[in-house]
Computed example of a mutant assay.
Amino acid sequence: MIYVQPLPPPTVSPQVGKIIQTGREQIHMLESGGANGNPVVLLHGCGSIAEEVMMPFSGSGLHIIAPDRPGYGFSQALPAGERGPRGQSFWLERFLEALELDKVVVAAHSIGCAAALHLAARRPDLLKGLFLISPCCRPVPFKPFIVLRSAVAPFVGPVIRQHVIARWSSYFLERGLRASSYPNPVTAELSTLPAIHMVNAASIATMAEELWAFNGDMQPPEGLPADLPVSVLFGREDRIIDPGWHLDWLHERHPALTVELLDDVGHMPHHVAPDLALTMLCDLAGKTPADIAGKTSDETGEASQPVIAVA
């Protein structure tokens, strides 16, 4: 019998957008849609990039801005001590100020919601609404994260990051996507994400740092302004975080959440039910899907080949 070794998957290039200078750091962002009206700002979750969270919304016609959070993708990492949700909320504030934006809708996924919630508590004047997708916001019980802890351990950590995880980036990304998507299959568009760009030594260190800072940063019982619209989308079968655990925490801090719980859906409801996610986002933005339907790429200002620009 002849054994034929399968060819490795072709290298996928990451999408490249604009580099924004805030005065303290460089932030990479993707943008789509028309320039009219205030945009929606999208924040991705742990171990992801702007390209992923933008996928369900990029053809919607809404003006979308999606930055790589600090330490991920092409965005510069924050200094030590500022890498948790609270520090990232100040980073988000600087990002909005650099773009001269206020009264925006911020939509965030998973742990990206934590920074958005801190910003909403400190600077509600900057926000028009919050759309929280599978939000990780309440301090969580200890989890061992054996592979992640090994990858950042003294002495052996650099070897694991450089010669194990980075070398097998496609394997680790596929494993992560399957776990996040369960019980749903990994969508075709998620399968096109650039593995080497997402799973590398720098991103592994960033994941560990923000996870370690999470519980301490989310201890303060800060409330949210009662007049700030907040919508939440969760899958009931989420195996990454417990929906009830985080929804109870959110209900204590906001009197009038709009919540959609989807049966048979896991941690990626924006990819499994993109139409519902878009409708909820449009409601917060003061638009309806009919308002933005039928727009061409020329009308929405989307470019087929984004380029680096410095603002």
Results as ranks from 00 to 15, higher is better:
243 P>I: 11
122 R>G: 04
74 F>S: 05
238 D>K: 02
148 L>K: 01
145 F>Q: 15
275 D>A: 15
70 P>A: 13
260 E>K: 14
227 D>V: 06
194 P>Q: 15
108 A>M: 10
70 P>N: 09
183 P>L: 07
38 N>S: 15
232 V>S: 13
57 F>R: 08
228 L>Y: 05
115 A>V: 00
271 H>K: 10
249 W>G: 13
72 Y>W: 04
304 S>M: 14
63 H>V: 10
187 T>K: 15
130 L>Q: 03
120 A>R: 04
103 K>I: 01
245 W>Q: 15
109 H>T: 02
7 L>A: 11
77 A>Q: 06
250 L>D: 03
228 L>V: 12
185 P>F: 07
253 R>Q: 10
155 F>S: 13
97 E>R: 09
55 M>C: 02
190 L>V: 03
232 V>D: 05
117 L>A: 09
27 I>W: 05
79 P>Y: 01
123 R>V: 05
146 I>S: 12
55 M>E: 10
38 N>L: 15
61 G>M: 12
189 E>F: 06
197 H>W: 06
222 E>H: 14
40 V>S: 08
117 L>C: 13
19 I>F: 06
202 A>S: 14
42 L>I: 03
278 L>V: 00
280 M>V: 03
41 V>I: 14
296 T>M: 14
290 A>V: 07
224 L>D: 03
162 Q>G: 11
69 R>M: 08
48 S>F: 04
92 L>N: 01
48 S>Y: 01
1 M>Q: 09
11 T>M: 15
106 V>G: 06
127 L>I: 06
176 G>W: 02
275 D>H: 11
28 H>D: 02
25 E>L: 10
146 I>D: 09
31 E>M: 04
267 H>W: 05
95 F>K: 04
81 G>T: 00
309 A>S: 14
119 L>I: 02
126 L>H: 07
300 T>W: 07
143 K>I: 13
258 T>G: 07
229 P>V: 08
222 E>Q: 14
65 I>V: 12
132 L>N: 00
47 G>D: 05
160 I>D: 03
97 E>D: 08
275 D>K: 09
266 G>Q: 06
148 L>S: 07
159 V>C: 09
204 I>H: 01
2 I>F: 08
225 P>T: 03
192 T>Y: 13
